[in-house]
């Protein structure tokens, strides 16, 4: 616990606040992941942790090490950028996969596939499991 005592009070309060905001938002996102009722509701909940949860904890870490070492320590920024870029990609792919599976099973909760315009040529092959 020795390095923590070297952080001045004006820096410790915002660092602690950012940590609590980030961890609290991640916690709320996981509560939503556990409690919400359908998959398409649940897929929104963890993004709370991957947007502001990650941002808060990463900013707290950047501030802490910058104050401790007396120079700007910005490499945690890479982590925030990486998570922000990859989360929409993974969740879009996962949601498309879930929609595909539900449509293949004829689940009535999911809207049916829209017919393609006839100008597209041959009749569109409706999604079959490969």
């Amino acid at each position: 616990m020795t390095p923590m005592a070297e952080v001045p009070l004006w820096a410790a309060i915002p660092i602690a606040a950012l940590l609590l905001i980030g961890a609290g938002l991640t916690f709320i996102g996981s509560v939503g992941l556990m409690r919400l009722s359908s998959f398409y509701d649940r897929i929104h909940a963890p993004t709370l942790g991957s947007s502001w949860g990650t941002a808060g904890i990463v900013m707290a870490s950047m501030g802490y090490f910058s104050v401790l070492q007396g120079r700007p320590v910005l490499h945690e920024f890479l982590l925030g950028v990486f998570v922000t870029v990859t989360t929409p990609v993974t969740l879009t792919l996962l949601a498309r996969a879930a929609v595909f599976r539900d449509r293949t099973e004829g689940n009535p909760d999911v809207p049916a596939r829209e017919p393609l315009p006839p100008a597209a040529g041959a009749a569109p092959a409706d999604g079959e499991p490969s």
Binding site: M1, M4, A5, V7, P8, L9, A11, A12, I13, I15, A16, A17, L19, L20, G22, A23, G24, T26, F27, G29, S30, V31, G49, I57, Y64
Partner: peptide, 21 residues
């Protein structure tokens, strides 16, 4: 003083993250 604030915030944050996991 600042060590107390930081240690408390870290303990709460880690507890929240473990519960989230």
């Amino acid at each position: 003083m600042s060590a107390t604030i930081l240690a408390t915030a870290l303990a709460i944050a880690q507890l929240a993250l473990v519960l989230a996991m």
